[in-house]
Simulated assay, not measured.
Amino acid sequence: MIFDMDGVLVDTEGYYARRRKEFLLAEGVPYEDSWDFTGLNKQATWAKMVPDAARRQRLMEEYDRDYSPRHPIPFARLSNPDVPQLFRMLKARGIKTGIASSSPADSITKMAEALGIGTYIDVAVSGEECPAHKPDPAVYLQALKGLELSPAQALAVEDSPAGIQAAKRAGIYTLALSAYSGAADQSAADAKITRLTEVLGYLETKPSEKRRGHSG
């Protein structure tokens, strides 16, 4: 199993947007509430908010150095309630588990610690460690390599169009979690779920010939 983080394990997208909005307004930068950053990496998100490259770089550095540390992400409060039980069950069944996220590596680590699932995660890959971000499949290909799985042995759980596209490009059967997605286009996914625990049924029924084996 390979999970995206934001919008799947934790409902962080709204928190990120509010934190960025408060920072930018305090800096005198206009902010559009209609902006949708779901599935975008950091560089793409900031380019959308601050078109001027020089100003954007300065604000990003200030945001990372000062503002973000003073406003840490409350991962435990934003957690999908199914996560701890699901990860324990996957571990008990001998299922290898990975994280493939566009978020920085330290955010993935903090999330795992806050949710108490660090010992259940076999591999965690940040998009910032890869040559390209989602929808490029690099983060999923690296996760597959770390888990020592072929695409046919894996399942991916995503929420955003870019994330779904990345997992599909890696050749992985992909489930779209609709719980936090809002109006996101998830039509490219192989199937949709409304609760994370539904992934257990896909492990048992093997809905696609692409998914031979029980290791993923």
Rank of each mutant, 00 (worst) to 15 (best):
P161D: 07
G216V: 05
E22D: 14
K206L: 14
D122M: 06
E32K: 10
H214F: 13
L78Q: 09
Q142G: 04
A191C: 11
A100H: 00
I95V: 13
A124M: 09
G7D: 02
E128Q: 15
Q85T: 14
A100D: 04
A176I: 05
M1D: 03
H133E: 09
Q153C: 06
A114K: 02
Q43G: 11
A162S: 14
S101F: 04
T205Q: 14
S107M: 13
K192I: 05
I2Q: 02
A143D: 01
I108V: 14
K21V: 07
V10P: 00
N41E: 11
V157H: 06
M1C: 08
K21W: 08
Y202A: 09
G146E: 11
P131E: 08
I108H: 05
A184C: 12
Y15A: 01
S208Q: 08
R212I: 11
K206V: 14
G39E: 02
V123P: 04
F87Q: 01
G28I: 03
A100R: 02
Y15W: 15
P135W: 01
G98P: 00
E204I: 00
L90Y: 02
A138H: 04
A44W: 00
C130G: 04
Y140I: 07
D159C: 11
L175S: 06
L147Y: 05
P72A: 09
L9F: 04
R212H: 11
G163E: 00
P137Y: 00
S215R: 11
G171E: 00
A188Q: 09
S208I: 13
F23Y: 15
S79Q: 15
L175V: 10
T205P: 06
P74Q: 14
L9P: 01
E204K: 10
L147I: 08
K110G: 06
P72C: 06
K21C: 12
Y173H: 08
A53D: 10
M1Q: 02
D185R: 11
D11M: 10
Q186K: 15
P104F: 10
A184T: 01
R18K: 13
V29Q: 05
D6G: 07
L141D: 06
A26Y: 09
L24D: 07
W46I: 00
I99E: 03
G39Y: 01
D11V: 10
A114M: 04
Q85L: 13
E22L: 15
L59H: 01
K42A: 08
S101V: 02
R195G: 09
K110A: 15
Q153T: 12
R65I: 10
E148W: 07
V199F: 01
S181A: 15
Q142H: 10
Y63D: 05
L9C: 12
S215C: 07
P137G: 07
